[in-house]
């Protein structure tokens, strides 16, 4: 049970890194990014490929984050000036392209077979110790990300992205160019997603293209919507809610053992979908939403 909880904690931390990036992009800036998983995927593959070819893990993790950020740049150049809903479509397309490239460029990524045997981050320790250390690392990185987000929120940069979310044309009328701010936000969120991808790859030890489907992106969206869009505490709460539903519904099997495994997977999705609907109806600002505004 303890090992199980630690495993969930690690996944929650990885989700939290993803969610903090998306919250910066959508919650604070209004950038509708439907392709978040693409950067997660780039981070995971970059770090996994480098590490399996002998690059030290610390370096490969950093490279994963950097590669994801680098990949966000051309996407930003071609699409950041699009209206927000069109950017959503472009970013969704981007993440699917990433997945298809990873699937078909077998010489590099081993295609659908995936990459097995990705080195652990902490070599030469017992698997229990590995998990403990991993949990600690993920939590430290989450804490750093949260502190960075807090600094951003309180800065003139944070004020300007909030202004962009409220009214982009008014921002331009004041002589400020929204595109530059949105680009920085896109890059930073992608860096976080890339690092999260690297952690994920090294933790589970095997990655394949079917782990990076758009559904991951939408799980992150659900988390920040349920928790409270635009608020750091909301992002944390949202990830906890999401993990509770994802994992909690596993235990439904203990209560109802007659339900087959396949049906169970669908029921879990259904439960999360229902929760999302109830949230948008009864708590549209999310659990930690700001009730003084709006």
């Amino acid at each position: 049970m303890e090992a199980y909880l630690i495993a969930i904690g690690i996944f929650a931390g990885i989700y939290l890194l993803l969610a903090l990036g998306l919250n910066l992009q959508f919650g604070m800036t209004g950038l509708i990014n439907f392709g978040h998983v693409g950067f997660f995927c780039i981070g995971a593959y970059t770090s996994a490929l480098l590490a399996t070819n002998g690059v030290p893990v610390a370096l490969s993790l950093a490279a994963g984050g950097f590669a994801a950020m680098l990949a966000a740049w051309p996407l930003g150049v071609v699409s950041i000036r699009l209206r927000e809903d069109y950017f959503a479509i472009a970013s969704l397309g981007f993440s699917e392209i990433v997945r298809l490239v990873v699937t078909s460029e077998g010489w590099l990524t081993k295609g659908v077979q995936g990459i097995p045997g990705i080195p652990r981050i902490f070599p030469g320790v017992s698997s229990q110790m590995q998990s403990m250390l991993m949990f600690g690392l993920v939590m430290v990185l989450c804490l750093l990300a949260i502190l960075a987000m807090r600094r951003i929120v309180k800065s003139p940069f944070g004020r300007m992205i909030e202004a962009i979310r409220d009214n982009e044309e008014a921002v331009r009328s004041l002589g400020k160019e929204p595109a530059g701010f949105k680009m920085q936000v896109l890059l930073l969120g992608s860096l976080l997603a890339g690092v999260a991808g690297g952690l994920y790859a090294h933790y589970i030890g095997y990655i394949s293209p079917d782990q990076f489907i758009p559904f991951i992106t939408f799980q992150i969206w659900m988390a920040i919507i349920m928790g409270g869009v635009g608020r750091i505490s909301g992002t944390v709460a949202g990830v906890i809610i999401l993990m509770t539903f994802l994992e909690g519904s596993r235990f439904l099997r203990d209560v109802a053992p007659f339900i087959p495994e396949v049906a169970m997977a669908s029921i879990r999705l259904g439960v999360i979908g229902l929760a999302l609907m109830l949230f948008t109806i009864y708590r549209p600002q999310g659990l930690m939403g700001d009730y003084t505004k709006r």
């Binding site: 909030e162 202004a163 979310r165 409220d166 009214n167 044309e169 008014a170 009328s173 709006r294």
Partner: peptide, 12 residues
């Protein structure tokens, strides 16, 4: 310029 319908940053 300003706008005919004010474009304040409403949440700020």
């Amino acid at each position: 310029r300003t706008f005919q319908v004010p474009r304040e940053f409403s949440h700020m």
